[in-house]
Nucleic acid binder design. Structure first.
Lengths: 231, 231
DNA sequence: TCAAAAGTGTTAACCATACACCCATGC
DNA sequence: GCATGGGTGTATGGTTAACACTTTTGA
């Protein structure tokens, strides 16, 4: 036990809430791992772990996420820091939570170090979670709902090429509402941040929808000119 | 040095960005302390300090704020956690930042433990700040600007009784813009979250303005019914 | 030919914007 | 009486919201 300090110190961890959208089930999913070790052994939890002394918080989150789930190269945003004194039975542990939005099909997940298993769970059918991870997840969903109307983050949950109806379903799922198809199309197309492509849906048992892409550069430029996304 | 651990641990601190509005100067101010000890001795910094092992992060922030500035009983909201490895010359220190909005006149400030001096500074005339505190402050201002249009937090920066023109000036200051007086009044009054009072401004060298109060309960109820504040 | 989703316009109500003058008060 | 800010209405254009049918495709 070589590390000694004049005053006691809490341990610091990071946890990651990785959310995905499943268009076929119109469902938001979260990536969970089954814990290999105590405490909460064999229970489902958010991927995460201890912060090393020479890495930034975000680096720690990315590292733990890759180590435990195989998911790499994604954009994490800091969510909130959870530090209630008794949130971890091992002692005082302060956890900095991050969240990410990814297209469900875009990454392959695999169980790795410290995880027995990795799985996507619908946020409507969750197992009991370790620690205060339900609280962290709830906080991520709240952030998503608050943000999705003012920032075009919904696109991160869809594949690069998507149909307008998928985008609409995504918004309907996140905001727990229904939207008028014609008005939705008018509004989003008028914003001029989508690129129409010549690709169409494949293998659907009905008329194939035209696919669109989010035009990030156009969006950035419009923002500079004072445009503000609002849905 | 009685505290030893198997793995090294970062130190954890809290820092508070307390913002106030000065209607007479139409200026946003931030509460800073002059540091009594190294590092950055005699430099201005955000109030803050180390988290005790048995207190929550918010409790720590409130405690440090009161100890160093005399400001108590205010509402703090967590802002962001700063954890770049070299942000503190003493070693790895992770800081959870909080921010608060208060009416400038409502609290008396006094220098206390760990602080040589306490003062309000206009955010347009800041001294050099210790650590990465300019970054933290910038982050608080960004949060304020992002939030003030969608959440009625502006009222926290004003006295309980305020004139509509003060509210307008506050918005103009925060958003760095100008607003049309008639349209502003129509919009805010139509929202129905202000209580008209029978009080008027005192001691002004022109017609005294009617004072209003923010009706928190009404606002909460409207929110439940689906209303969303937007300015 | 049927099922399933794609795609498309119009109208009415509401809201945002632009804009200028008189009023009340203290000095 | 003058300087300062308080307080008020209208007209125009744009945005939102409500609403239903035809088209395309694969099975």
């Amino acid at each position: 036990m070589p590390y000694t300090y004049e005053y006691p110190r809490p341990a610091v961890t990071v946890d990651c809430v990785v959310l995905g959208f499943d268009p076929s089930e119109r469902d938001l999913k979260v990536l969970l791992i089954k814990r290999l070790s105590e405490p909460y052994k064999n229970q489902w939890a958010l991927p995460g772990g201890f912060v090393d002394m020479d890495e930034s918080l975000e680096t720690a989150a990315l590292r733990e996420l890759e180590e435990e789930t195989g998911v790499a190269n994604i954009f994490l945003e800091q969510l909130y820091t959870f530090g209630t004194p008794n949130r971890d039975p091992r002692g005082r542990v302060i956890s900095v939570a991050y969240y990410a939005l990814i297209s469900l099909g875009s990454k392959t997940i695999r169980a790795a170090s410290d995880a027995k298993d990795v799985q996507w769970f619908s946020i409507n059918h969750l197992p009991a979670l370790a620690f205060d991870h339900s609280l962290i997840l709830a906080s991520a969903l709240q952030r998503l709902r608050g943000k999705v109307r003012y920032v075009p983050i919904g696109f991160e949950l869809l594949p690069d090429y998507f149909a307008l109806s998928q985008l609409q379903q995504l918004y309907e799922t996140i905001l727990e509402t229904t939207l008028d198809k014609r008005n939705f199309r008018k509004k989003i197309l008028r914003m001029d941040v989508l690129k129409e492509t010549d690709n169409y849906q494949q293998g659907v048992a009905h008329r194939a929808a035209r696919l669109y892409r989010f035009d990030e550069q156009k969006y950035e430029q419009l923002v500079k000119e004072g445009f503000s996304f609002e849905l």
